[in-house]
Structure formats: C-alpha cells, structure tokens
Design a protein around this nucleic acid. Structure first.
Ligand code: ZN
Ligand code: ZN
Ligand code: ZN
Ligand code: ZN
Lengths: 161, 161
DNA sequence: GGCAGCGGTGATACACTGTAACATTCCCGC
DNA sequence: GCGGGAATGTTACAGTGTATCACCGCTGCC
C-alpha cells in the first residue's frame, strides 16, 4: 500500500482492519463469515470508494462467482457494525478505521482528483449543525455530510507543476 | 444575499416560481422552453421531492408521452440555473425558492414522515464546516448536507395522538 | 431562396444500482 | 434425527441514469 500523507485511511492497514472487524463481531456475538471477510478486505485494500459491482467483480476474479446481491448483504452487515460507510454521492463504499460514537457527525472529504475519501469530525461543526436544526424546529435522525474537492496532496501536486 | 433559518417562512407559490424561472432565463439569455416549464411546474407543485420518473409519468398523463431522458435534460438545465436541487439521499428533486450565493452551504431537512424537504443555511454551520475542512487541509468545491428526521409539524402531530 | 450550424427534443438502447422472492445449505439446540 | 434460524445462492425485476443518433426549428450567411 502506498503512503499518502494526511490520508487517514492509509494509517490503518488492511490486516489491522480485518483483525478489528473480527474482534468486533466476536464481541457482539456475530458471524464474521468468509464472504463478509472477503468483502471487508476488498473495500479495505482499495485506495478509493468501491461500488458494489466493482467488489463483486473483484471477488469473482479469484474463481468463484460472487453475485452483487451477496455483496450488498455483506455491505449492509458491515455498515450496521460501523465497519464500512456508504458514500451517497458516489454510490460507493469505504472502510471505516475509526469506530464512531453513536450520533457522531462525520464529514466525508472526497477528492475529485485522486478519488480518496477521508473522514473528519469536529465538535464545532456538530454544534453548528445542531443549533441550525434546532432553530428550524427539526429533529435529526441521521445526517449525510459529504464534501467534494481537492485533498492536500493533490493541491500540492498541482502547484508543483 | 438572502439567508434562511428553515421553514415555511417562504411560501413561494407555483406561479411565482415559474415567473421567477422565466425571468432568470431571460436575464441570462437562455430558453425557458415548454418542456423546461412543464418540468419546473411538476417539481414545484409537488409537495415533496420528485423522482425523474415520477415527473415523466406525471407529464405523460396529460396526453403526450415524455421520456425520462427528456426530464433528466430539463432537470440538468434547471439545476445549473439554481432553480432545482437534487436530493442525493433520495434520488429526487425539489424546487429551490431562494437563489443562493455561490458557495453558500445549504442543509436539506428531509422529513421521514411527511416527506417534505426544507432548506436551511446558517453562517455558524458554514464557518464550522470551513474550519473543519481547513484543519484537514481540504479545499472544498461542492458539498452535500442532508439531514433526515422529523419536521416540527410531524413531531407535534405525533405528540397530540 | 438555399444552406450550414446549433440548441433542443424524440426515441431507442443500454449501463449501473439496488431489492424481492424463494431455494439451499449449514449449524446449533432439542 | 429433527426443527429453526442465519447466511448464502439464484433468478428475476425495479429504479436510476447515460450514450447515441435522428429530427426539427431557428439563425446567420451566401
Ligand atoms: Zn468512519
Ligand atoms: Zn487527492
Ligand atoms: Zn435552494
Ligand atoms: Zn414532516
């Protein structure tokens, strides 16, 4: 795996990610089946967000055919456990190396140049959102915060040239 | 610039919406064609977010068949002009009664009970997001902020029963 | 008039994304 | 062994969006 400065996703290796997933499942009395493991691995080892059909194709390449519907089921499971996030603006999925507190607001930073998706969260942003919602008389249940732009690495690369 | 703290404060009627769209197009030297007008009307008169196929069906009901692809083209045009927003988490479209400053962050408040989508924006939220992005070394180009929950009206309705 | 160019639309086909429904397998407790 | 539940396989289908080409109406130009 290449190293990209500033990209959180790269600070957690694929092996670590799989080990953590297995631990979480065991702690919760859930099954970390071979399919779920393979899907987790496919998502974790890709440098950028993967579509469900990309994952199905990748897994099918090693011999045994995996239908997209199976991938969706595995992804649903992994999302429920907080191991994977769905990027709504891309119809794609990324591994989550963090483990979030329930109700924690997370912003996805999607680089339109290199495709890497990073996560950020801040009290400040959350408070601002909460107050804005409160003023509007709206009770939040779930939020999607996604920003597309240029990551630091790509911006520097552009300035060099 | 025109800021909104959510809510029904802006009851823009369908007629007003169409008139505004026509004015904007004329000012910009663009064509507000019958198809674009019909799509704008269909989006504006629906109480909630409409899918492209819903719109196509609605327009086809009055006799002449309108293909979804035509609706998509009209919606693309209307979105470029800031007259319509796309709700990524619903794959659906809503009219925009506001006219936003370029780069203004807008939060969509999506009621999971009644389906109404409202807009809110606040300096506070924008500043929080800007600072969070800056800390992450990320340069934003476009952001999607969507919150699903219960609107004030639906919450009151629930408490009554 | 004739004609090329252009934007908008019609129409078909297709790709991509996601879900419903049912059959099968496997494992665990009785 | 047997019943039940969870996971997966399999097929079919619904929903969302795009590519491509043809056509039409208009404008500017010769
Ligand atoms: Zn995460
Ligand atoms: Zn980048
Ligand atoms: Zn708006
Ligand atoms: Zn509501």
């Amino acid at each position: 795996m290449h190293r990209h400065e500033g990209h959180d996703a790269c600070h957690t290796g694929v092996g670590d990610m799989l080990a953590r997933a297995e631990t979480i499942c065991r702690e919760r009395g859930l099954q970390f089946t071979p399919l779920r493991r393979d899907v987790m691995e496919a998502v974790a080892e890709a440098g950028k967000a993967q579509g469900a059909y990309d994952i199905a194709e990748k897994l099918s390449a090693r011999g045994k055919r995996v239908a997209p519907v199976s991938v969706y089921r595995a992804l649903d499971f992994l999302m429920e456990q907080g191991l994977v996030h769905r990027i709504a603006s891309r119809n794609a999925f990324i591994p989550c190396p963090h483990g979030h507190a329930p109700g924690e607001g997370v912003v996805f930073l999607i680089c339109r140049t290199c495709g890497v998706v990073d996560e950020a969260s801040s009290e400040e942003l959350e408070d601002g959102l909460d107050r804005t919602l409160k003023r509007a008389g709206f009770t939040p249940a779930h939020s999607i915060l996604e920003v597309e732009g240029d990551c630091g690495a790509c911006r520097e690369r552009r300035q060099d040239s």
